[in-house]
Design a protein around this nucleic acid. Sequence first.
DNA 1: CCTCTATGGCGAA
DNA 2: TCGCCCTAGAGGC
Length: 274
Amino acid sequence: MPEGHVTHRLAGELTAAFAGSVVRVSSPQGRFAEAAALLDGQVLTGAEAYGKNLFIGFGSDVNTELLVHVHLGLIGKLRLGPAVPVAAGDTLRLRIDNGEQAAELRGPQTCALITPAEQAGVTAALGPDPLRSDAAMASSWARVSRSDRAVASLLMDQRVCAGVGNIYRCEVLFRQRLHPLTPGREVTRRRWNRIWTDLTTLMPLGVRDGRIDTVLPEHGPDATGRAPRVDRHGGEVYVYRRAGQPCLVCDRLVSVQDFEARHLFWCGRCQRRR
DNA sequence: CCTCTATGGCGAA
DNA sequence: TCGCCCTAGAGGC
């Protein structure tokens, strides 16, 4: 269940564990069996993340390099751990094993064998990724500033900025005190700049910690004396999945609304259209 | 045991 | 806009 911080963290873990070594590749569940057989016994060259997309490279020769494109979707999981035998009937789509450690992929939206050219096609369709040093935020501003769509919608659009999901979207809008339904056209360049900068602050912390924490120290349990409110996803947040609970800043009950097939959370007092 | 939900995105209508 | 896809954990009975 990933936003961009998860994919980037996984890319680092995969590279650290497997880069440069010959690996066994299999698909116990069967859906990726043909491709897995092709990769089995090859060298894993490294892994790279772009937004919510993860690319795992195989092959010793640049000309014959192949990549596994993984997108976890809503429910996919990729875990690294000690190599243990696969249980019968396991839902394991992809397994990578170097004899010591194993990576196990379950429930992905995408697990496909692609060429470098196809990878370039995937990334070309994505907006700048706040977690990448090559991110050009100007391209996201260009889209936002001429859109009538709500800023909440634009933030989730991977063509606008890659890697942001529902938690980061709701939280960054709270932190910047911006109402989620503000049309992109009404977002000033200065304000979008702050949103972008905030994402480039928050998301690396998510990669480092493996969880999304967005609450500033002055609103946290240490300063306020209240109990920490850690969401099931593992982090402490202002509004995400806190509907009906008091805002950590103003005590107004947090609002929720279904919006484009997702839950949108915000504080009706702290967050204004502007 | 069943039902619901979830950090997502696609294609059909 | 809706249904659907993939899986696992939480909660209800």
